[in-house]
Nucleic acid binder design. Structure first.
Lengths: 344, 344
DNA sequence: CTGAAAGCGCTTACAG
DNA sequence: CTGAAAGCGCTTACAG
């Protein structure tokens, strides 16, 4: 039934080489003659060999895994981020362990647990700068730490210039006739886990409108939790205050989707009567012709993984900050392109 | 800096016993004299010893971890479920590895990967019955599998009687004057990952209303994605069709929260003008006085873990089905209790 | 470039 | 109830 898995030993025998050599090809060591490597690889193939990660961990004295602490919210953003991280991590034979922060209790428990010490060669913090939860502003770990979608002067950080994104959004919508509205995504109620990206986007947006001399009164800002239905409510709210045409910066693609949905239900022509601009550049934005401020989430993830890998390999320079810039992508929802109106 | 961690060896020396004995107390083996155990425990304490899980895994020939595949949605339900699972798993020194199903591709990749084989002594599938994705209706693994919040005749299953829950909801609201409405939470668009709990709730609900002779026309049903804003939209929709008092079965506590929120904004008295009944019994429901059909999520998780543990310890009986029953909890939102109206 | 050996930190029969 | 030994499947210097 549960047939014993082949080990490095059998591979070595079959390939007619020593254990060490098999291990070397496993680890992409330079010092292996190409033909030897090929022979070993073939033996693995024939045997259906797959390395036992646990043995590797104990022999190597490392866990070969990186943990990521991320908010317990399931969005396309984190899907993409994880994709980007894993891309470079798996290549180096590192696993990625996900730790959604289910509650503050669990966070502490985890960070202070002995599990962490064994499970992790490095730590990635997504979106939250958790350092303020701990004495001295440092996480209770001696492993390298990298922040992504967040910033902290004490750690390597990879982040998007959300303020710039907001300005791009403002400059884009300022070109159009009609009133300008925006939807701000609410922060989490738990003050301990605050992140500021949405506020930064709005600040940049307001700044660009001010520069362009376009009015943006407080009642043109609608606040909602991150949901598609929030976008629907927002558009209704805006339409109580103005008549088409109007322009909406949705603050997040998911919310923008709701604006599109509601516009469709109300029979408004998207791109003309209602112009909608999202933020994120998620794949689904393209599918529905949504204009958006795109952020290179996968690239940010890859970069964060790279910085962490550096540290794990011994790099000890001062904290590095990598800033990514978003770009404006104009599609049908702001009147660009073939102009085919959005049909939900 | 990174001081070497103490091992079982040092513990043995300090306690003046053999390696095997230390291992035995670690594993709660019966065959250890209480005083010996105490001595070993004290040595561990003094040394700050914590076992190295990787060594354990390779020596024991098992991973001592259980994987859970769960939908990539972050809800209180899964938080509670995980809590319940971990409660019993950690006690047996098993870890729980989370695998949110980010995409169908990743699911396949994961299930067919060699990682799974090493990482997992058992598999828990939450909410999705993924068996139909695979040939022969069986997952490509020889490890024990348990479903929770889902059912499949081929595997142990732990589930809630959602239909009964719907009936309880119907019977509750049928007692009140005023029209009766319901909110159905939408299934995921991806047909491959369908689960039917919301449909079952609604079917039970409709059945109970029919039995009670209360009308429930199609236009009294509002469908939305799972979000608080969805509840807000639903209440607006209902109020376009009737005048208070009205009664709303929200299908999920989160959605019910939105109904309460919107009622508050509109100045309606919750519990009198608008009666609201949720489903789930999440902790936050109590905080806001929300009546609800409570499901024992933690207990379901614990039970699933227990079933899996049985299997991992060699139990080979036929698939078992464990059915849990929800209960009605009446609070202010349906007029029970002190009657203090809900204030958001 | 490659092999043989030592060692990683545990668990598990096997004797006593 | 307890100790000493073998072994889990790898990695990593160390020689050649």
């Amino acid at each position: 039934m549960k047939r014993k898995r082949p080990t490095i030993h059998e591979v070595a025998t079959r390939a007619g080489v020593g254990l060490g050599t098999v291990s070397r090809v496993l680890n992409n060591h330079k010092a292996v003659r190409p033909e030897t490597r090929a022979r070993v690889l073939r033996a693995m193939e024939e045997l259906g060999y797959t390395p036992n990660p646990h043995a590797r961990r104990i022999a190597g004295g490392r866990s070969y895994t990186v943990s990521i602490l991320l908010p317990f919210v399931a969005t396309e953003f984190y899907r993409r981020l994880i994709e980007g991280l894993e891309g470079v991590l798996l290549e180096k034979r590192y696993d990625l362990a996900l730790f959604p922060i289910l509650s503050q209790n669990r966070l502490r428990r985890y960070l202070e647990s002995t599990t962490l010490a064994y499970l992790t060669d490095g730590l990635i913090l997504a979106s939250y700068d958790l350092t303020e939860h701990f004495d001295g502003g440092r996480l209770p770990t001696d492993r390298p730490v990298v922040l992504v979608d967040a910033r902290n002067p004490r750690y390597d950080s990879v982040y998007l210039d959300n303020s710039l994104g907001g300005r791009l959004a403002g400059e884009c919508l300022a070109r159009f006739p009609g009133a300008i509205f925006a939807i701000k995504v609410e922060e989490e109620p738990d003050r301990a886990f605050r992140h500021t990206v949405f506020a930064e986007r709005m600040a940049g947006f307001a700044e660009a409108l001010a520069t362009a001399g376009r009015p943006f009164p407080p009642e043109h800002l609608y606040t909602t939790r991150l949901s598609q239905e929030g976008g629907r409510l927002a558009l209704r709210y805006f339409l109580e205050r103005t008549s088409p045409p109007l322009n909406v910066f949705a603050g997040a693609d998911l919310v923008a989707l709701g604006v599109l949905e509601e516009a469709g239900r109300l029979g408004l022509t998207v791109g003309r009567e209602v112009r909608v601009l999202g933020f994120d550049g998620h794949p689904f934005a393209e599918e529905v012709g949504l204009s958006t401020i795109a952020q290179p989430v996968e690239a940010m993830g890859a970069k964060a993984a790279q910085l962490l890998l550096d540290r794990m390999q011994g790099y000890t320079g001062p904290p590095r900050e990598v800033r990514f810039e978003p770009i404006l992508i104009e599609r049908e929802s702001t009147g660009a392109g073939a102009g085919a109106p959005y049909v939900p």
